[in-house]
């Protein structure tokens, strides 16, 4: 369970995240949606202690992210940011191996190797394991980083726009994979996502933000209504029920 209590971030006079309080249940996919500049990524960065909070607290599995040691947190929650540029040249297997760092401090054991191979296999990256990360396509690189996060083997996985730069097929693969992490391995996945229809089809909980505030939280049925979506995006969005999924139509 992730508990946010009055989480606030300010940059000078501008408040980017304004006193957000919420509870994200353990197990399940939680999507954070909202227009650009709503503070979604900032909120996720604060949950993962990449950004310090200016006020309020965040507890992940009972651990206060502001005070708990980095290593303990790194065994509880993992974070994947949007832009993952590497200045070092390393192979996919080496990158995935870094996911074990919180557990082994850089000295891999047999157990660590098993975790690495399992993570590679889970993401279909075994054949690419010896390639350099900078030689991969965008989608493959994204999967390599997810494999690293998977090797970290934390109960909580936070992802900032994991569908960025992915085509339709890879987006669907990614969302299915996140679903499998929850359904097969019992992980808790929290992601920032722009596509409301992916959020609708794959999430157990949706959190909607606007202007730094949390304005709605609920299941896909509760959030995917024209009224709520209008409230969030200021756009008239029709919601159709297609094969049991609520799909927002906003293209024309």
């Amino acid at each position: 369970m992730i508990t946010l209590d009055n989480a606030t971030k300010r940059y000078g006079p501008i408040t980017v995240v304004d006193g957000v309080s919420a509870t994200i249940p353990r197990g399940g996919v939680t999507s954070i949606i909202g227009p650009n500049g709503a503070g979604k990524s900032t909120l996720l960065s604060m949950m993962s202690r990449l950004l310090p909070l200016d006020a309020g607290t965040v507890h992940v599995d009972g651990l206060d992210v502001s005070t708990t040691s980095g290593q303990t947190l790194a065994r509880t929650l993992s974070i994947l940011r949007q832009e993952n540029q590497l200045t070092v040249r390393l192979s996919v297997r080496d990158l995935v191996g870094f996911g074990r760092f919180p557990h082994n401090g850089g000295r891999p054991t047999v157990v660590d190797r098993e975790h690495i191979e399992r993570a590679l296999e889970y993401l279909d990256m075994t054949e690419l394991a010896d390639r350099f990360v900078d030689e991969l396509s965008g989608g493959q690189r994204q999967r390599a980083f997810i494999a690293m996060v998977l090797a970290q083997d934390t109960d909580f996985i936070l992802l900032d726009e994991p569908l960025n730069n992915l085509d339709m097929k890879h987006s669907v693969d990614m969302m299915r994979l996140l679903r499998r992490l929850v359904d097969d391995l019992g992980k808790t996945v929290v992601l920032v996502i722009h596509d409301i229809n992916f959020a609708s089809c794959y999430s157990d909980t949706i959190i909607a933000m606007r202007d730094g505030a949390l304005i709605h939280q609920g299941t896909a049925e509760e959030i995917m209504t024209p009224e709520v979506l209008r409230d969030v995006y200021d756009v008239d969005i029709q919601v159709e029920l297609i094969r049991g999924n609520r799909i927002g139509v906003y293209f024309a």
């Binding site: 980095g70 790194a74 993992s78 200045t87």
Partner: peptide, 16 residues
């Protein structure tokens, strides 16, 4: 080695 991956990744992997 972890630090060379950049600040965010290093923090995510538990480096102070």
């Amino acid at each position: 080695d972890v630090l060379a991956l950049g600040r965010d990744t290093a923090v995510g992997l538990g480096v102070d």
